[in-house]
Design a protein around this nucleic acid. Structure first.
Lengths: 234, 234
DNA sequence: CAGACCAATCTGGTTAACCAATTTTGTTAA
DNA sequence: TTAACAAAATTGGTTAACCAGATTGGTCTG
């Protein structure tokens, strides 16, 4: 019975251990898709961890789509097959938290696509949202203030207009870390911000005119500096 | 005090309501980055929800990088600025679960990039893992069996070899849903599987020979059918 | 012997009590 | 007045008890 308070990182290690034990259990008991896992009480006792910790681990695996728990019934193995299950569990356990370079690289990839899709699919409502974000950005910059947040929100409005909820979700996931890293490394300087208004406007106009190729091109221009920065980090 | 048992979807609605209330609180109290949120007990009482539900909502916002809770100290607002905070909360609340088309579209985008990066960065260890996955896939197909899982695991091994943990994570997130949808819609048929071995081999060789352009080209060939399928769903 | 039905049990979800570290606050001494 | 120290209140995390629906095993009836 653990009594010391665990730090956040230690807690994550415990979670990984639990996931690892769940993997061993699935492996050892040869549990197949649709099979029911032992109850939470039984597992928490068997693993020697608290039920809350176990529940958190299960929730994480549920997030990755590997488990599915149903109220008053049990926790079940997802219908993805035992081989995929085993492989994915291994990958999840080995997963490391993303570095800044990965984040920027992924952001550029996503945005070159979302702005293209946005040009193809944007609704009038999407356009309005984008315009609002664009104006907020311009106002801040013209006032000489820092506008990293407004910048990112404009880009998020494009992601939303892309009509692809996966990419939209992924943009939402990486944006906060991008912001904190930007502010840490001072990636955005004020001189570029003024230029940024024009670039944002170009992107907006391209999407408004439903020109996907131009939109992507303008986004590429907008990312030029960031792109070079990203590939010179290491 | 709610006593009925909530279904999973109802539960998610409750979570959204809580997040919405947290947003209102931040808005109303003008909480800024680094500020401390009221304690969990106080909030759960104020919102009229259980502390567990509140904690789940907080964990979700922590996942998106908007909050940061520290043991024995409190839950704090992330250092991303009030405007970004408000905008992102709005987007998260409006987020819808991804459809199959979004998943496939995102997968293709990610994989064309990861296989290119893998060709540039793969280690010898990465190559070994890819070879193992490749052989497992070939064995199953040559045996006339269904090999959707092995197929996906090969692609995941490429994502891992890309050295970009964000993209690796995102691939892990979308893969289970892809698998279940594949099996539901019978996207993969056996005839193509035999062809798939050759295509997988081509991709593997290109990555092994560190030829990013060829790797991407071969991946594009591999996705040709899926690509057409994806854009003919609606 | 098969099918319907009911109660005991088991389940995940929820609520309340508990823990130790931290933070705040009040007091005292320099 | 201020700095230092200690006690009390506050905090997120943990554990244990509780709830109502789902499951199951056995029993009874046709």
């Amino acid at each position: 019975m653990k009594l010391e308070v665990l730090t956040k990182s230690e807690n994550k290690e415990v979670q990984k251990e639990i996931i690892s034990k769940i993997r061993d259990l699935i492996d050892f008991k040869n549990l197949e898709p649709g099979d029911k896992l032992p109850s939470e009480r039984m597992l928490s006792e068997k693993f020697g961890v608290s039920r809350s910790s176990l529940r958190e681990a299960i929730q994480r695996l549920e997030f990755y789509g590997l488990l599915k728990s149903r109220p008053q019934s049990g926790t079940f193995i997802a219908d993805i097959g035992p081989i995929a299950m085993k492989g994915m569990l291994k990958d999840i356990l080995e997963l490391e938290s993303p570095d800044f370079k990965s984040l920027v690289e992924t952001r550029i990839l996503l945005e070159l696509k979302t702005c293209r899709l946005a040009a193809l699919r944007r609704t009038e409502e999407d356009l309005e949202h984008m315009k609002e974000a664009l104006d907020a950005f311009s106002a801040k910059v013209n006032n000489g203030e820092d506008a990293v947040q407004e910048d990112l929100l404009f880009h998020l409005s494009i992601a939303k207009a892309s009509g692809n909820s996966s990419m939209n979700t992924f943009m939402l996931i990486i944006t906060p870390e991008i912001i904190t890293n930007f502010e840490k490394y001072h990636v955005c300087n004020v001189n570029r911000a003024a230029l940024g208004i024009q670039e944002h406007n170009d992107i907006y106009e391209a999407i408004k005119n439903q020109d996907p190729t131009l939109a992507k091109e303008k986004m590429k221009v907008h990312f030029k500096m960031l792109y070079e920065y990203c590939y010179n980090i290491e």
